[in-house]
Design a binder for these strands. Sequence first.
DNA 1: CCAAAAGTGTTCGCATTACACCCATGC
DNA 2: GCATGGGTGTAATGCGAACACTTTTGG
Lengths: 227, 227
Amino acid sequence: MSAAAAAAPAVAVDVAVFTVRDGALHVLLVRLRRGALAGRWALPGGRVRADESLDEAAARELAEATGLRDVYLEQLYSFGSPHRDPYGRVVSVAYVALIAHGGRFAADEEGVTADGRYAGVAWRSVGALPPLAYDHDSVVATALARLRAKLSYTNLVYTLLPAAFTLSELQTMYEAVLGRALDRRNFRKKILGLGLLRPLHRVRRGRHRPAALYAFRHRRPMIVEIL
Amino acid sequence: MSAAAAAAPAVAVDVAVFTVRDGALHVLLVRLRRGALAGRWALPGGRVRADESLDEAAARELAEATGLRDVYLEQLYSFGSPHRDPYGRVVSVAYVALIAHGGRFAADEEGVTADGRYAGVAWRSVGALPPLAYDHDSVVATALARLRAKLSYTNLVYTLLPAAFTLSELQTMYEAVLGRALDRRNFRKKILGLGLLRPLHRVRRGRHRPAALYAFRHRRPMIVEIL
DNA sequence: CCAAAAGTGTTCGCATTACACCCATGC
DNA sequence: GCATGGGTGTAATGCGAACACTTTTGG
C-alpha cells in the first residue's frame, strides 16, 4: 500500500464526463479528499480491479462518484508518463462520458461522496477550469478534441439531450460543443434531411412561439456525416 | 514470475506495424517462442518498464523486435479484458506504426530474434492473416480502421513512402490502405492542388514513359483533408 | 511496332454557404 | 403591443465524380 516509484505500473481509469448546461459545455470534477493531492480538483477515477475490464472499471468509477448508470462511455486515450502520479507509477486509461443535463446531478454537491474519496462534485464550464491534479488538464484537452471531432461525424448528440427536444435545443448542443454559431436555416435543413429525427407532433411552450418537439429515431451510436 | 490471475493488472504494449508492399497493405507479425502460446503468430510487444512512458515502451519493443528506429508511432487503443492473456491479467496499450517498405526488413526473417523471444518475423498481407494470439485479431482490426480513417484527413502517407516517389506510387499507397481504386486524374488534381508536394524535376525510368518524382514538403504529421 | 504506364480538361450534379422576413405566443 | 424565439426559401459557389485519348519510353 506504500508508494512504489520503481515498481511495475498500476492501472487506473479516469472519466471525463461532459454535459451541456445553459448553452455551455461543462465537465464533472471531483475534489480529492485524501493523499498528497487532497483539496485539488480532478476527474473521477480509480484503480482497475483484477476481475473487471477497462470499460467496466470506468462505468463503476463513474457510478461510485455520481450514481450515474447506463451512461454513454467511450475509451479516449491512455496516459502513462512515469511521473504523472506522485503516489507511484500509474498508467491511466481515460474515458469520455456524455450525459444529458437535468436528470440527477443537475446541481453541484458539496458533501463528501458515499465512498468517502471525494470532498465534493461539481460541474465546471470547460472555458474556466481550475488547474487539475495529475495530468488531467491534458486528459480534458484530449477529450475535448475527440468530442468536437466525433460530434461532426456521428449522431452522439443524442447522449446530451433528453428524449424530447426542440431543434433549437439540438442546435445549442452543437454550438456549445463546437464553439461556433451555426446558421439556423441551414442547420434545420441539414438535420431534417438526414432523417435521424422523428417529429413528436407536440410542442414546447414558453414566453414566445411554441417550438415543435422531436425525438431521435435511434438512440444508439451511429456513424453519420452531420456537419 | 508465476501466473497471477487475480493480481493487479500488468501493463504491456503491442505494436501493429504496417507497410505497403507490392500494392498490398501488410502487417508485421512475430512467431512466439516461449510460453503457453509458443508457435503462434502475434504482434510484437511486451511489458512496460517502470521508468519509461508508454510511447517509449512501444518504440523500444519495436526496436528490439526489428531494429527499426525513428518510426512513426501512434497510440491506438487499450485492451483490457480480464482473460485476454492466458498468462495472467495484462492490460495492453496498442500502438500503430507506419514505415516505408524497402529499407531494412524488406524480406522476412526466419531465425530467432536477438532477444530470443521470437522464432521469426514476417510481413503478412492484411487480407490473409493467420489467427493471432491473445486478442491481436481485434487489435489489427482496430488498427486498420484507424489507419483508413486517418489517411483521409492527415498527410500520414508520407510515413509509407521513401523520400522521392512518383504520383502513381503515392496513389498506390492510398489504394492499398483504403482498399478501393481511385481515379488518376482526380487524384493528381486533388493532391497537387493541396501543395503538399515539391516537384524534384527528376524522373524515374522503367520500361515505359518516365514518371516525375516528387517529395513531401514537410515530413511531419499534419491535419489535411485529403480524400 | 507493341506494351505499359504517364500525363492531361471538361462537364455535371450535389452540397454548402450566405442571407432577411414574417409568425405565434406570453406578458 | 412588444419582446422573444420559431419557422421558412432561394441564389451562388465550390467540390467531388465521371469520363477517354495522347504521349513517352523500353524491348
